[in-house]
Design a protein around this nucleic acid. Sequence first.
DNA 1: GAGCACTGC
Length: 721
Amino acid sequence: MDSKYASVGIENNLKACGLKRKHAIENIKAKKIKLSNDAAGVSVTNIKKVVTNGHNDVIENRPVQESAQDLQVARRRLPVFMVKNRLIDEIKKNDTMILIGETGSGKTTQIPQLIHEQRLEGAGAIAVTQPRRVAAITIALRVAAEMNTEIGSIVGYSVRFEDVTSPRTKVKYLTDGMLLREAIVDPLLKKYSIIVLDEAHERTISTDVLFGIVKLAQKERNEKKQIPLKVIIMSATMDVDSFRKYFHNCPVIYLEGRTFPVTIYHTKTKQDDYQYAAVCTIFQLHATTPANHDFLVFLTGQEEIETVMYNIKQIAKEATGPPMRVCPLYAGLPPAKQLQVWREAPPGTRKVILSTNIAEASVTIPNIKCVIDTGVVKERTWCGVSGAERLAVRVCSQAAGWQRAGRAGRTQPGAAYRLFPAKDFAARPHHHTPEIVRCPLASSLLLLLAAGIDPSTFPLIDPPPLDSVKASLLLLKEFGAIESEANPKLTVLGKKMSMFPIDPKYSKVLLSAPEYNCLEEALSLVAVLSSENVFHTPMHKREEAFKVKQKFLSPLGDHITLLNVFKAFCKAPLKKQWCKENFLNHKNLTYACDVRQQLLTICQKLNLPVSSCGQAHDQLLKCLLCGLFTNCAWLRGGGGAGGAGGGGAAGAVARRYVTATGRAAALHPGSALQALRPPPALLYSELLLTGRAYMLTASAIQPHWLHQVAPDYARRCRTNR
DNA sequence: GAGCACTGC
């Protein structure tokens, strides 16, 4: 019952901190689940259920500096090494195979090396894809060290902004998105004789599309009697059936991993407040486990992390147990602040990391002994018909649950506390919904068309909803990128659009810019819009951050405000310091600069004149409307300029907008337009449904602009309204 | 009137 809380006095502390107790965590029921330990072996038929926590096998956050001899000793100890002959035979025999390898099996670093040692790639090269840049780079560095060669020669990597390969490169690690872009130019992927698609279980939209591309390339190369293409699908979890079916019942090989056992605990009853349950569990464990046991807590987002962090710090002042260091971790956190997650806590101090699912696969934190899993995740889905995106907290899949638990068993045996009952876990879906089923498709469609592939017959494991495909084709038609929805042949404009590695709505903006004499500004703006949020607003400093933001504000709205920020950043001499003072994200702004350079290079190749509109920001907004004309909203009550007069309440009512699809939407509270008289019409970059429908990044426009920029759409839109 | 998971080109 509540004994554990009473014994550590948590209950009173929680009350003192204003935390309401809805449900105590009752005795947590333990269930030991054995993870694969040091046994290694290959078995094709007997697939055992063990903890599946698919992360690449590379040791992250550790510089490669071991001696060549040490590296060889370490290699020989890897499970994959012990079965290498068998593996090589299978690879020789089969054109396609699936390799299920647990964490620590060594598949990602070793298989490409084994292939190369046997020269199985022949005259071609081996491509190994990864969903993340860091992984592609660090693994390539590791493999180059193991092979005792310089990076960029035999072993290389290719990620956006960085191509460290040469004509001699035989083993090339690259992001899946990068291989996809190579496929536009060369759909048969002729450079490669072997393609390894790693982390296939993550089902990124790029990996899913690549599945189809390699399948078609294999077939066509066979038909044309070219060098055959071998394909190896590597995955951590065991969604084998769908993969196998898709790849013509190809053989599946199972590799055991090498991780430590993790004991799984579930709560006896459902918790209706997982934040509260997490805080309770943290202090319950805090009072009963040694101080050198670090905790990793999975939460859904920045705000939640900040709230929980605040509560923990308040309670920790009076709670039983060693001193505590609480570290937040989420992608938007500036890297300097992320660093303390990896810094060792002083002896006798416990480290508690509060993280989003960034710690699930993207980053590895050493020495985690306890994982506390709330079992929820924030997930984005897209509604093709309305063009709105929904960001909602949902329960995560079983695979994610295993993945999270596995984070406690990386360096030592550990424990995972799930804040939901075991039977709830059993009822959850095995895997998360693949990205391709819940994402905008215009970009991928454009890419396929540019590669000369017919989307209507393109083989996908999980086809996206028909509505999404239709909506995306319609959008491409409205941009003038394809001839018609029934005959989606790329136009000259569409061909040009496909060359830009950004959302089609923004490549449309860039290609329209010369007409408005504003490519200079459009490049900067699109670069920022294509990057992550440049504003960093910690919860407790909102007021201060808001004040600092004033100097960048433009009465025209958020887009010009962003442009002002970007221009000021480019001019600032001490960028890092300047960003800190202005509550801006240095990393994301630097990234935007790189993106701008890349976009500029493409514009130059297309001979687009790079001219500036100066202070004529109307020009820039009209140009922006060329790509965002589907994202207009009108002030409800027909402009409202006449009657507004009243007080605060009337102002609030006047801020209601209606979108082109007839949906009620509100300006996001962070918008630069908030402080001003609401404009009769505006355009927005994104429509996000959280509690309500919010327009993110919005700017004022003249209602008649829409008729000038997209007359067909404007006409249709008016009849709809 | 009150809030924005994670990747990638």
